[in-house]
Design a protein around this nucleic acid. Structure first.
Lengths: 219, 219
DNA sequence: AAAATAATTAAACAAATGATTAAATCCATG
DNA sequence: CATGGATTTAATCATTTGTTTAATTATTTT
């Protein structure tokens, strides 16, 4: 297909259709559905505005196509590892954390984007993502529950799924605030996130091991 | 000011100006700036569309007014406790966690909203919130750093500030996803969050105490 | 009560924006 | 080359949307 040539990194010229999809992904992710103009996408893609409707019918259709691709890729990319019966819970945690830290360093705007779109239109996105609903049936989740039981911790396993995701993705969604707090540079932030590659799995394992004293709380 | 009357919960009738502000807060928070129409706000407030511009000049001005109020209230509401030299780190954690769990149960859409607005227009909001930049100078932060030192943990204290916020607010920003995973009801979610009132402070204290082995990570 | 000021309304305007049209250009195939 | 379909473009349309205007009603002041 793409004619390869010389020694330089040769980018196969994208078709207009592909250019639109890439531009749409970029602009939608940064500004959200409502704030992006079809003209923004056309300009970003370097194509005529009418081509957008020629290939994708409407802004809405383009959004659903591109974002369903992104979202399922985001959630499914780690699915195999989560269902792998050969690796330990701790190994899975390490793979999971490293995978998403890599991903989020390249796509830092994605989490807030997806959370905002879900919040402003829950039905449109939640239904289409079966990857999410399969998580509680994964080997990973079962190993998590087993580890809890072994340690005599009677808390619902959900807490620790939440905690893992929280420690993993929250730094990225709060990145502008963290940067604002410490006037920290991009490089400093990346250094922090690289440290967390080892820290997050350790913290999660430690939380699992803690005895749950199971005190009452005020209703 | 407001004339109080009988035994029933008497709502002092809001002025049009107040009705608009309340409606704006609600609609902006749920749908974001770009997706809300001035007509949505007018309808929600039950007032004529022109009144919005009569009192607030423009959608943009209304947004900045109302959201600056919300945001500074959100961040400043706990400021006194964070600077209290009388209470211990653990006590502060408990107060902080309980305060924000209360707040977020009533305003679950606020975090995603504010994060999305910051992401799509960082300069507009970050500058105005000095509360955020004062956090690293708070007694809370100093106690956190001291506790780390005492335990021989050489990691940057920021990690634990991030972790505290993560464990506290992430469940709310991810609420629709969590509900989707476990088909859980509103009541079940609230029960989980009530459990976390005690769990989050404990988890954070535990993370602080862990020895940091300080292994190298791949650059 | 009269006058003045404030609040409210219906209607309309102007710009932005998603979408369409019809003509022009490109490109493979016979 | 000629033909026919696919691609691209400039121009335009129709609707939405933030805002304004001018007239009407309510409230306060004199």
């Amino acid at each position: 297909m793409a004619k390869r040539s010389s020694h330089t990194t040769q980018v196969p010229p994208l078709s207009s259709e592909e250019k639109i999809k890439e531009a749409a992904r970029k602009v939608f992710t940064q500004k959200g559905f409502a704030a992006t103009r079809t003209r923004d996408i056309a300009k970003e893609a370097g194509i005529n505005l009418a081509l957008l409707n020629y290939y994708f019918r409407s802004k809405e259709k383009l959004f659903e196509l591109v974002m369903f691709e992104s979202a399922s890729q985001f959630f499914a990319s780690i699915s195999a590892e989560l269902h792998n019966p050969k690796t330990s819970l701790e190994q899975k945690l390490t793979v999971l954390v490293n995978h998403y830290i890599d991903l989020l360093m390249n796509e830092p705007d994605f989490p807030v984007f997806i959370l905002h779109e879900i919040q402003s239109n829950p039905s449109r996105l939640i239904n289409r993502m079966q990857a999410i609903e399969l998580l509680p049936q994964s080997v990973f989740f079962k190993q998590l529950a087993a580890q809890l039981k072994k340690c005599g911790n009677t808390l619902p396993p959900v807490h620790f799924l939440i905690n893992t995701m929280a420690l993993l993705v929250f730094p990225f969604v709060a990145r502008p605030m963290i940067a604002g707090m410490f006037r920290s540079s991009e490089a400093q932030f990346r250094e922090l996130m690289n440290q967390r590659r080892e820290l997050v799995p350790r913290w999660v394992m430690q939380m699992l091991k803690e005895k749950n004293t199971n005190k009452k709380h005020k209703s």
